[in-house]
């Protein structure tokens, strides 16, 4: 089970012994180890509350891990506070609630993906260089939203907003995209469309994708490889073809502490 594509080459992302306990004492992650190959579309599957969201947020340090390390292309990205912006710039993020700034235009929303590359003085007057606009529009074209570039974000439907959010992540020219339940608020037809756009763009640009999902059918359809999570631990790692009923039961219905019994 542990011989997926990732091992031949150096992993794009290597998560080692990652744990996170929140201030309230809730343990969200417990010694998570995952390797992600460059350009891979990895789905992290699990029920809500399994720690998927915390895992992604540890990668771009929206959440500080309690223990463990993360390496990106061999460089350690956890621990130091310095250079955090440069680290985050390499990771695009897509959210369940899209998180667009609703009163700004679609184009400006995508342009915010370029902010980390630009000085604060230019940002102060809400102005972007021509080169950034080119990048932003191209990213919009990739998700087929360039025809609505000048509309306000709140005039778009949910699926369209998520496509714009993907364009914003692409505009960062990231190495990795972290997608946190990107289709949980969308109906099935739109959800498949959005996931297709995400996979296609990532493939063309060679971007690694970590995508949280809780629906098994999308994981079967889109994933190259699946990591199953339950109660903060990885309980499965393998191809989507290996997702048997037994394994799904382990991901979705396991009680905390059951794992040890099974292994014993």
């Amino acid at each position: 089970m542990m011989v997926p594509a990732g091992h031949a080459v150096e992993p794009s992302l290597s998560i080692r012994g990652l744990s996170k306990t929140y201030a309230g004492g809730v343990q969200a992650l417990n010694n998570v180890n995952i390797n992600v190959a460059p350009g891979e579309f990895l789905v992290i599957l699990g029920p809500s509350g399994a720690g998927k969201s915390t895992l992604l947020r540890c990668v771009n340090r929206l959440v500080e891990p309690s223990a463990g390390e993360i390496f990106h292309n061999g460089a350690k990205i956890t621990g130091r506070r310095r250079g955090l912006r440069a680290i985050r710039r390499q990771f695009g993020m897509v959210f369940q609630q899209f998180n667009l700034v609703k009163r700004l235009s679609v184009l400006t929303n995508v342009l915010t993906g370029r902010l980390a590359y630009r000085s604060i003085w230019r940002s102060l007057v809400y102005s972007f260089p021509e080169a950034d606009k080119c990048i932003a529009i191209e990213c919009l074209a990739r998700v087929n939203m360039d025809h609505k570039a000048f509309q306000r974000a709140d005039t778009l439907s949910g699926g369209e907003q998520q496509r714009v959010a993907i364009a914003r992540a692409l505009a960062q020219q990231p190495k990795v995209i972290l997608a946190d339940e990107p289709v949980a608020s969308l109906d099935p037809k739109i959800a498949r469309q959005v996931l297709s756009y995400l996979r296609e763009a990532a493939q063309e640009l060679g971007i690694t994708v970590l995508c949280n999902l809780h629906q098994v059918e999308y994981a079967r359809e889109f994933a190259e490889r699946v990591v199953g999570m339950s109660h903060g631990s990885v309980v499965f790692e393998g191809s989507s073809l290996e997702l048997t009923d037994d394994i799904l039961h382990r991901i979705y219905y396991r009680e905390p502490g059951e794992e040890e019994k099974e292994e014993a």
Binding site: I87, L100, L115, I120, A169
Partner: peptide, 19 residues
């Protein structure tokens, strides 16, 4: 939500406030 999203792009604090 959008505040978190912009922080995740690597935008600076002031940029997040402005945008």
């Amino acid at each position: 939500g959008p505040v978190e999203a912009l922080a995740a792009t690597g935008a600076s604090r002031l940029q997040v406030i402005l945008y």
